[in-house]
Design a protein around this nucleic acid. Structure first.
Lengths: 256, 256
DNA sequence: CGCAAGATTGATAAAGATCAAGCCGGGTGG
DNA sequence: CCACCCGGCTTGATCTTTATCAATCTTGCG
């Protein structure tokens, strides 16, 4: 079975067969959620942890005047609320962008994993820290990049993140966002988003076909965006404890 | 001895006398660092954890063109790099804003704490998650608030964060940032920062006297900024395991 | 066919950037 | 003690980016 969580975490550490079994067991009953539905709302105190297994979702915050800011894009393998139990209540909402499959993991399963399985705990930590690094990068993009380069940076990021879980093939990937949603992620108006997307198209950097994105030339796009992928921490750490193990198809691209 | 870490963490959980002792022992040798010095640079792989005990610092990212974006402001009690060992290398730098006192904590001390002291681990987790929540709020402010309200929001945040560690007295607090640094935090030009600060002054919301900030009327400032403090998670969680214990002077303001 | 959601376009206004001076206060060297 | 220098603050003028308002177009679909 395709397990995006396993695929993602295997990038952080070399998982043993037992680790893999545990992570597969975590994926039990999947709930289908339609596009544009809330998975969790601000103020909720969820008693289970939600994991996106298929589809796209986003974290968002609403402002008093009704404007929305998307603060993260969630893809298969991402947790929605791994640690809300510690903070108490959600300070933001999570909504699907496309139809999704979500698993609900009982808190005690997570507790058990983190108590007794240090490798997995380490990997979950790593995932949390990468999420945090992405937030910092978004801040930088919002504060210091003009909209066209910001969108280009977002495309680079999605390209690499999706590639790392095997959802890029032939330089093309699914990205089911409307222009309004792109605007909400980049902090601009929908009209401006439209114009900047058209500009990227005209420059021959990216093609948008329906909900699919095709990167014409990733190097050119990276250069235009001023994109530095270091924050995604994609390189496998050289952990001396791990000896050499089978490396899951990191480099190859493959479809979903 | 004044221990800002203890003060901060006591907000998350009720610490036992033993916890407090452990957290006091952590604060050993303090290193003084001048203002405007890097504590850590992008690409570093620090072998010790750095904790700000006194003074102000910031996380920042540099862009190819030399522009800077400040992505977080660090105050006494904040860790610089609690978990860089997991990610490998720093994807951003940390620099002092004022003269600081920093403690270097050996990694093994942290490892020992997190292995054997679940309450403290829980509190460290909590601190990390609040940092993450602050990043999301900054994204929202950058994306969806005009500069004047954004700066006002920043002042509200600093007011509450500093108050929670006892560094606000008489609605006034130290904030040793130049206008260039405010501009770098809010993602605007220094000229615009100057004008927006003047505007806040003219509106009678905030007074800037040297490196001190005085909030004239916090409610008005909050209203102007459209500020919602929920993301700071300041409320003590009602943890049924904790019974009633001495509550450290949460409400009262007091000087440093 | 007709509708609705989303995409596109043009015109105009507002927010913010940039360029260029000038100011102000504290520190330093003569 | 004073002239000067420098970093940081302030101000004005102008330019660029982005928002807003208002249509119009396109497309999938019942």
């Amino acid at each position: 079975m395709y397990n995006p969580l396993l695929r993602k975490l295997s990038r952080a550490i070399d998982l043993t067969a037992e680790d893999e079994k545990l992570l597969n067991d975590v994926i039990g009953v999947q709930r289908g959620v339609e596009a544009r539905q809330d998975i969790i709302q601000e103020g909720d105190r969820p008693e289970e942890v939600h994991l996106i297994v298929q589809g796209f979702a986003c974290r968002y915050k609403l402002l008093p005047n009704g404007e929305r800011q998307i603060v993260a894009i969630l893809i298969p393998g991402d947790f929605c609320d791994l640690h809300v139990a510690i903070l108490g209540e959600m300070d933001h909402g999570i909504a699907t962008l496309s139809r999704c499959k979500v698993v609900h993991i009982p808190r005690k399963t997570i507790d058990e994993l983190t108590r007794n399985h240090p490798r997995i705990t380490h990997a979950l930590w790593w995932a949390t820290l990468v999420d945090e690094a992405i937030l910092r990068e978004w801040i930088t993009n919002l504060g210091r990049k003009p909209a066209d380069r910001h969108i280009a940076s977002l495309m680079c990021e999605m390209y690499l993140r999706l590639k790392s879980i095997g959802l890029v093939s032939d330089h093309t990937f699914e990205l089911p966002m409307t222009q309004q949603e792109v605007a909400d992620a980049v902090g601009i108006s929908i009209v401006h988003a439209n114009r900047m997307l058209a500009e990227l198209r005209d420059r021959g950097l990216v093609t948008f076909q329906g909900r699919r994105v095709r990167i014409t030339d990733i190097d050119e796009l990276v250069a235009f965006a001023g994109f530095n992928k270091n924050y995604l921490h994609l390189r496998r750490r050289n952990n001396p404890e791990n000896g050499q193990r089978i490396v899951h198809d990191q480099g190859r691209e493959q479809g979903s």
